[in-house]
């Protein structure tokens, strides 16, 4: 699997992401500067990493979403290429129109930096095939604006089409108000676009991939993506 990680000024999780991708795929990851107008030839997966692109000025992800490289990402996604956005990356994908909805200020107004649990809703997608449906995984979050909101119609479509792939839950997998730490609509942690090839999620699976991190629950996501391309090859 050949991955490309986008780099914007103010992004700070790009190296964690590249490390996780290398660990899973064995391949070096291309780091692609925001001013580029094309992705490296043969790219299988584009990752928009986390951080604080442009200092979160205007709105989180708003300025990065209009960077030249995003036109290339839009073309790549339109051809069915896989795109993963994590944290600020999720915000950037929403701002760029690749995903519906918006990430609002956490309902509790606080920046939340800790481990949370999320439930894998289905396992038959490129982004979840490394897990079992219903599996509960522990992943870190670190955000102030992760409260996913969309209009009723959009939420209904997301649910009806099975596009909510990850949902905040308790340790034992119960989706309730207490585990919905940022107030997201329907406890949404991660969603895909209509075609299922663009995933945005707030938690950081790339920070739970090695024993030294104290948890390896994030590995499944990357292992699943690698499997996807092994199968296709």
């Amino acid at each position: 699997m050949k991955s490309a990680v986008l780099v914007f000024p103010g992004i700070n999780r790009e190296r964690d992401m590249a490390r996780a991708l290398k660990l899973a795929s064995g391949n070096e990851t291309a780091m692609v500067w925001h001013a580029e107008t094309a992705l490296p030839r043969g790219t299988d997966l584009v990752v928009v990493p986390g951080g604080f692109s442009y200092g979160d000025y205007l709105r989180c992800g708003a300025i990065a979403a209009r960077a030249p490289v995003m036109d290339a990402v839009r073309d790549f996604a339109a051809k069915g290429g896989l795109v993963l956005g994590v944290c600020n990356g999720f915000q950037i994908l929403c701002e760029s129109g690749l995903l519906p909805g918006v990430l609002m200020r956490n309902a509790g107004l606080k920046f939340v930096c800790r481990d949370v649990h999320m439930k894998v809703e289905r396992s038959d997608t490129p982004f979840t095939r490394g897990y079992n449906a219903g599996q509960v995984i522990r992943v870190p979050v670190a955000h102030g604006e992760g409260n996913y909101e969309a209009d009723e119609e959009t939420l209904k479509r997301l649910e009806g089409e099975g596009r909510v792939l990850y949902r905040y839950c308790s340790t034992d997998g119960v989706v309730d108000e207490a585990s919905n730490f940022n107030g997201a609509a329907h406890s949404i942690a991660g969603i895909v676009n209509e075609r299922g090839n663009v995933l945005g999620m707030m938690p950081h699976p790339e920070n739970h991939v090695e024993e030294i991190m104290g948890c390896t629950d994030g590995r499944g996501l990357f292992a699943g993506l690698v499997q996807q391309f092994e199968k296709a090859a």
Partner: peptide, 9 residues
């Protein structure tokens, strides 16, 4: 339309 407002919200 292009930048200053997110017309979703």
């Amino acid at each position: 339309d292009k930048l200053l407002a997110n017309t979703v919200i």
